[in-house]
């Protein structure tokens, strides 16, 4: 890659720069700042779209009473039950139970506090099933050509 070919397609770096190694006219390598590359922006936005879809599906399941509010924050934080169990310090089978509304309603305050602390929300809000919106990255727009 030549220095003149280093892409500057602003997207996922939010205007920050990353380093790419490129050659100058005499063929010498040096580190060059780059605000991003379009193929990477496309690939990354696809991954985020998948997460958005999963969160949306979870919200539907919660509204129809199939899943507990815990499932929403789990999906929002890109976790599965194993990862959530690891972070909350609660065994996986118990986490799986807590994903069901029946067991979630009977959750003791200690376990509830662990989940709330992890997701940085108020335990009462979690118990009442408040679903706070995600702080997602901006939707990536195509760079102007």
């Amino acid at each position: 890659m030549k220095i003149s070919e280093v892409p500057n397609d602003t997207g996922i770096t939010e205007g920050g720069r990353e380093i790419r190694y490129a050659v100058d006219e005499s063929g010498l390598y040096s580190p060059v700042g780059s605000t991003g590359w379009e193929p990477v922006n496309i690939a990354n936005s696809l991954a985020w779209e998948k997460i958005r879809q999963e969160v949306a599906a979870t919200v539907t399941a919660i509204e129809s009473g199939r899943l507990s509010p815990l499932a929403y924050y789990m999906a929002l934080n890109q976790m599965d039950s194993a990862l959530l169990a690891g972070y909350a310090g609660i065994s996986r089978w118990r986490v799986r139970l807590h994903l069901k509304p029946f067991f979630f309603r009977r959750l003791n305050s200690k376990a509830l506090a662990r989940y709330a602390d992890l997701f940085n929300i108020n335990p009462d809000d979690l118990r009442r099933g408040k679903l706070f919106p995600p702080s997602y990255p901006p939707i990536i727009t195509e760079p102007s050509r």
Binding site: I19, R20, Y21, Y29, P39, I42, A43, N44, L46, A47
Partner: peptide
Amino acid sequence: LHLSQVIRMQEEIGTGGGGFRFLYAA
């Protein structure tokens, strides 16, 4: 999704492009 995975592993977080190949060329 599979293709995007290949691209991201190759290029994301300043891998210097070309999956570290340019870094090694340097």
